[in-house]
Design a protein around this nucleic acid. Structure first.
Lengths: 112, 112
DNA sequence: CTGTTATTTCGATAATCGTTGAATTATGGA
DNA sequence: TCCATAATTCAACGATTATCGAAATAACAG
């Protein structure tokens, strides 16, 4: 219940939503903090702050690998959030989950 | 894109999420501000503040009816948000939208 | 017009947020 | 050991947020 608010708050910020989307695109193996920082042009300390929000919200995981820290999107938590919204937005009402009209987008590669 | 952030921010607050859920349960015809205030035990001015956030985010509509103002959930916008999250969380990855396990809840009536 | 009900607007307040610069910790290479 | 790289922590700041009390607006009844 209150988990949802924390998750929503974690995603309710431009940079943080970008970070999460970046990690989703990076795939299950995740990406090092530095790569995310470079890819999104964010200061490392600012990014740390946002990573922490996402981590506390259970939306990402963090693991050390050499001197990098690899962050990865936690898809299950995102699914839980979507499930919550789906159930709590559409109590008996019509609620078409929208069958992806655009089809797979251009699939941006991680920039150099 | 940025619409999503505004919508997420609108829902990322305890009282506001409660208000939206209340309106969803109230159905498409909506509920007067006073009824919501009584039902959720919120000060009318505080509630006005939250309604405005939801309205700006496009998540509710407001119409005058006599001396009451009726607020109603805008389901389409919520669906759009869920669609955005579904598409942007699950780029090619497994993303089971969870087929409503709990089934229709006790369906609380609007309190007197 | 006067009073009552329903809601919003205004001003102020404490708390939280996002960003920055400087310092710190952790890892690995020479 | 000494140095460079990767990331975090800390202290500070301006900005935004949520709430409150008081006043204002809107609609209706008498």
């Amino acid at each position: 219940m209150s988990d949802a608010v924390v998750a929503l708050a974690a995603l309710a910020q431009d940079n943080r939503l970008d970070v999460f989307r970046f990690l989703v695109q990076a795939g299950p193996q995740g990406a090092p903090a530095g790569v995310v920082a470079a890819g999104l042009d964010l200061a490392p300390n600012t990014l740390s702050f946002h990573f922490d929000r996402l981590r506390v919200a259970g939306l990402v995981t963090a693991r050390r690998e050499g001197r990098s820290i690899i962050y990865a999107a936690k898809y299950e938590q995102m699914n839980a959030l979507i499930a919550f919204l789906t159930q709590n937005c559409c109590q008996g009402v019509q609620c078409t989950p929208a069958p992806v009209e655009g089809q797979a987008r251009k699939r941006r590669k991680i920039p150099a």
